[in-house]
Nucleic acid binder design. Structure first.
Lengths: 231, 231
DNA sequence: CGGGTTTTCGACTTATTATCGAAAACCGGG
DNA sequence: CCCGGTTTTCGATAATAAGTCGAAAACCCG
């Protein structure tokens, strides 16, 4: 490391990823099982130490690559940095957490110690990772409603019914398909394609397939509150 | 520092504060002038090194106390952590930035090297502090419209006209007093007191004084988009 | 072809935001 | 004390957004 030329300590710095995906109608997080103390047997967020010349985002990508193919990550954004001196019983450690999203339908192959866990029935979780997961979930829920973040949870094309299930799983409450379609279309977030999905075996009208208009994060709500007296 | 028991470097970690206040109708940021290289003569955000057993928030409070009385800070929240290896030309350094807000009307006494600068006419700024300031401004603007964050910018009591000017300065565009009053009252963000403000010398109807209902951050927008089919 | 199923869409209601202008309440001066 | 000038407040209405409902569309199978 670089030498220290002024007062102040130096800190072991770790990056962590909260990788979320909707699987079988439930929001899941990617965790790996610790094989040694502390928290032996408990599950932890993937991540690892920040490298000497890395930036946080790059470092996260490097560590994450050991768990899932990076091409499967549709969205990555910094969440928050935790600094409680006691968060790791072994030593002082600062950790920066990221939120990462994987589109539904993908099923990356995982190392043996790694698995998806539903957010509403988490196993014993190591360190302060439980509260970090909660932060990530809250951030996802908030952004789903006022941005086009859904693009990162959905496959390239989908029906409104499929999208409704995705949103319901992520938001944690039932969602109206009619409203979802109307609101997202009006906001320009999703647009119909010219293809339709074949009905289920039981029949039913074939559903139009939609796609997200953009795959870059964008704020879509009015949010222009208290607008100027206009021109 | 604690010894390192696994691979990975150790990083000098700094906390920074973007202290914002509306002064004379413009959003200002608190900066201090660097007396030595690098960036000698340029202006920088207040802050300093993270202490060995401190958490980030505590550390920020300590460093900030050297610039302004902490009691003047109405709101403090973590913004983001910067990790570009080249952000400080001297050495590798990770920095976590916070957003801090000071209510209008306060005029903390400042050290000689420290001053308020309007955001729209910043002097030369050191390191990557310019882009951190921009992030802080964006965060403030977004939260002003869907939370009650305004409480941190406003004095304990105020008239609607005063509040309009505060919001206009922070948002960077004109604001309708009528809408502001109606929306914030309906959302339960502000409430009238029983006192009125004396009119100006030119006369005019005396304005009723309002106050923020809560002084804790709270999300106030509908944001419950795509609500469930209800019970 | 007819009953069963799922999606789509129009029509309506409710909620929220924006616009406008008149009324309220005060000042100073004649 | 009345009057024009000023600023704030508030009601009426328009515009936009969101939520509800149910019928029509489009498909399955036997």
């Amino acid at each position: 490391m670089a030498s220290i030329s002024r007062p102040g300590g130096s800190f072991y710095h770790e990056v962590l990823a909260v990788v979320l995906q909707v699987r079988r109608g439930c929001l899941h997080v990617l965790l790996w099982r610790r094989a040694r103390p502390p928290f032996e047997g408990a599950w932890a967020l993937p991540g690892g130490p920040l490298g000497a010349d890395e930036r946080l985002g790059t470092s996260l990508g490097r560590h994450l690559a050991a768990k899932v193919a990076l091409t499967e990550i549709a969205q990555l954004e910094q969440l928050e940095t935790r600094s409680d001196p006691d968060r790791d019983p072994r030593q002082r450690e600062v950790a920066t957490a990221y939120l990462a999203l994987v589109a539904a339908g993908l099923d990356p192959c995982l190392p043996a110690d790694t698995a998806w866990h539903p957010l509403d029935r988490l196993p014993a979780v190591a360190f302060d990772h439980g509260s970090i997961i909660a932060s990530a979930r809250d951030r996802l829920r908030a952004k789903l409603s006022y941005t086009n973040l859904g693009f990162a949870l959905a496959p390239p094309v989908f029906t409104v019914a499929e999208l409704r299930d995705l949103y319901a799983a992520a938001l944690g409450h039932p969602v109206s398909a009619t409203n979802l379609q109307r609101i997202l279309v009006r906001r320009g977030v999703i647009a119909p394609t010219d293809e339709v999905a074949p009905p289920s075996a039981a029949g039913g009208r074939p559903a139009t397939r939609y796609r997200f208009a953009e795959r870059e994060l964008r704020v879509t709500n009015p949010l222009a509150a208290f607008r100027p007296p206009s021109p």
